[in-house]
């Protein structure tokens, strides 16, 4: 699935990384606990979260993720956007809640783990 498709499905705003919207991603995860993302996630390219602080972007960066989606209308700080831009991470923001956002992406085909 292209990141631009995620944007459309979630009716999301693009806060940075417009130039990477055509990148293909194959899997995603949703969590507000960065500890769990670091410990359990493998090869997921997209992180959906309701947590807003700079460590969300750094965690994504350490895990080689390419896109962070903030749910429930959460807005990242300018500093977070700058960190994301520097590491080439796309930031999306949606009004949808975590459950609905994850479910929407899952039923539309973003459900494979990369092999």
């Amino acid at each position: 699935m292209k990141i631009s498709t995620i944007k459309e499905l979630l009716d999301a705003d693009v806060l940075c990384g417009v130039e990477s919207l055509e990148k293909e991603v194959h899997s995603a995860c949703g969590s507000d606990m960065m500890s769990d993302v670091l410990a359990y996630v493998k090869d997921q390219a997209v992180l959906l979260t309701g947590l807003v602080n700079s460590q969300v972007i750094r965690t994504a960066e350490m895990m080689d993720m390419v896109c962070v989606v903030f749910v429930r209308s959460k807005r990242p700080t300018l500093e977070m956007i700058e960190i994301a831009e520097e590491s080439g991470i796309v930031i999306l923001a949606t009004k949808k809640r975590m459950y609905e956002a994850c479910g929407t992406l899952f039923v539309n085909g973003l459900n494979n783990t990369k092999d």
């Binding site: 507000d32 606990m33 960065m34 500890s35 769990d36 670091l38 410990a39 359990y40 947590l51 602080n53 460590q55 969300v56 965690t59």
Partner: peptide, 12 residues
């Protein structure tokens, strides 16, 4: 509340 403290860091 900052997203850490699951007790997973050292094992990881």
């Amino acid at each position: 509340s900052l997203g850490f403290g699951a007790g997973m860091g050292l094992p990881n």
